[in-house]
Structures are given as structure tokens and as C-alpha cells.
Computed example of a mutant assay.
Amino acid sequence: MRHFYLCFVAVLFLAACGGPAEPIWAPDADVARARYVHDGPPSITLYTVLATRDGSGAHAGLLINGSQRVIFDPAGTWHHPRLPERNDVHFGMTPLMVDFYLDYHARETFDVVEQTIIVSPEVAELALRRAMAHGAVPKAQCTIAISGILRGLPGFESLPSTWFPKSMMTAFGKLPGVKTKRITDTDTNDNHGVLLVQAGDPRLK
């Protein structure tokens, strides 16, 4: 009974990882057109959204910089009308799009913790392939999906299998060479309209 209760609480606790598990599959032409190759080193970045009220974890996403840069945003609600998506993998993650992603999540009630680790090209590519093969993620399963991808990578075996964003963030922070930064925003709105602003951003023209 106690086990059932804890599982039930976990699902409620992670309800902020909203979004349907319905498959989305952008056409090949759109994915090819959006492809973005970042000039930085191969890397994996874990984003953790934390409530400013009590520090609890609300969501997690994974930015992968390999042969192209994408973000795996499992069960997330973020999207951009100019970016194609395949089952929670968003292609074309330029610096501007990363800014949009962070702006969407960081607000008066939520901070975003960014943790980046440099990896070999082979590990980055394996992470990319695993994210693209994962499939659409159901509600409240953002962190367990990320956990499944990371734990299969060389050098990430110590990470836990967990449903909780903050637990994953803590373990990820103990990996050798991780660089951490916290993104804050005092904006009081809930960012539901932020995509409309992004779509009309003059930097996109």
C-alpha cells in the first residue's frame, strides 16, 4: 500500500511535465532543413526546472550537441512553429532557440538549472540516436525517459533510474567536469503567450 501511495505522489509531483504522448513525426524535408550544427564541442546538457517556492523539481530536458544539436524535451509543452519535432525531439536548436526554450521555462515561479558536460563525439552521437529512437513520452515521465537515455551512455552509468528531476540533477552534478549555471527570470507572466512573441521575433527575419 505504501509503495502504491509513493508512486501516486510521484505522478502528482511531476504533473508539470505536461503534454500528450501522441506521436509526432515531422517530414524528412523539414528535419533536413532545420538541421543545425553547433561549433562547440560535443556535449550533453541537462536542464532542470525548479519551483522557486520550495525548490522542487518540475520538469527536465536534454540538449544534445552531436552531429547536429537537438533538444529532447520529454512530455514537455514547449514548441516553436519554426522547428520540426519528432516524438519530443526538437531539431534546429540554434543559440536563439535555446534562449527561447529557457525563456519559456524560467519565470518568477521557476528557475532553470543548466548542467553541461563535454563528451566524446561517439557518446554525443549515441545520446542523439537514443533520444531519436525513444518515442513519445507520456505525461509525468520526463525524468525517467531522460534517465533511460543517459544510463546507457559510457561515463553516465552512475546516474539513477528516477522519476524525480531534482534527484537526476543532483546525480548529474556529481559527474566529472560538469559546469552548472542557474537561469532566473523575474517575469510574472506564466509564459503561455511567449511562443507568439517568439514567432514574431525580428531576429528570425
Rank of each mutant, 00 (worst) to 15 (best):
R2M: 11
L6K: 15
F8C: 07
V9E: 09
V11H: 10
L12Y: 08
L14F: 11
L14K: 08
A15C: 12
A16H: 14
C17M: 05
G18C: 11
G18I: 15
E22N: 06
I24Y: 01
I24E: 14
W25D: 03
P27G: 03
A29Q: 09
V31A: 02
A32G: 04
G40T: 11
P41A: 14
P41I: 10
P42W: 14
S43N: 03
T45I: 01
L46G: 08
L46E: 10
T48S: 10
A51F: 05
R53N: 08
D54N: 15
D54T: 01
D54F: 07
G55C: 12
G57P: 03
G57F: 08
A58I: 07
A60C: 11
L63H: 00
Q68S: 03
R69W: 08
I71T: 15
P74C: 05
P74Q: 10
A75Q: 02
A75P: 02
G76M: 02
G76N: 06
T77A: 12
H80T: 13
P81M: 03
P81A: 06
P81H: 04
R82I: 00
R82M: 07
L83D: 10
E85A: 10
D88W: 04
F91V: 01
M93F: 02
P95Y: 08
P95T: 04
L96Q: 12
L96K: 12
F100Y: 15
F100N: 11
F100K: 08
Y104M: 03
H105C: 01
T109V: 10
F110Y: 15
F110A: 06
F110S: 03
F110Q: 13
V112Q: 09
V112N: 01
V113K: 10
V113S: 05
I118D: 09
V119H: 13
P121W: 04
V123Q: 04
E125M: 03
E125D: 11
L126N: 05
A127T: 15
A131Q: 03
M132F: 00
H134I: 13
A136L: 06
A136Y: 13
V137R: 05
K139A: 08
A140F: 00
T143K: 04
I146E: 07
I146C: 11
I146H: 02
S147W: 00
S147K: 04
G148W: 03
I149E: 01
R151P: 07
L153C: 09
P154H: 05
P154F: 08
G155R: 04
S158D: 14
S158H: 06
S158Y: 03
S158Q: 14
P160D: 12
P160M: 06
P160R: 11
P165Q: 08
P165C: 04
K166W: 11
M168C: 06
M169Y: 04
M169G: 02
T170A: 13
A171C: 09
P176H: 15
G177P: 09
K181W: 13
R182K: 14
R182V: 08
I183P: 05
I183Y: 10
D185L: 00
D185Q: 04
D185V: 01
T186V: 06
T186R: 11
N189T: 12
N189R: 07
D190Y: 15
N191E: 06
H192K: 14
H192R: 14
V194M: 09
V194S: 04
V197S: 09
V197K: 15
V197L: 13
G200T: 11
R203K: 13
L204V: 01
K205H: 10
K205N: 02
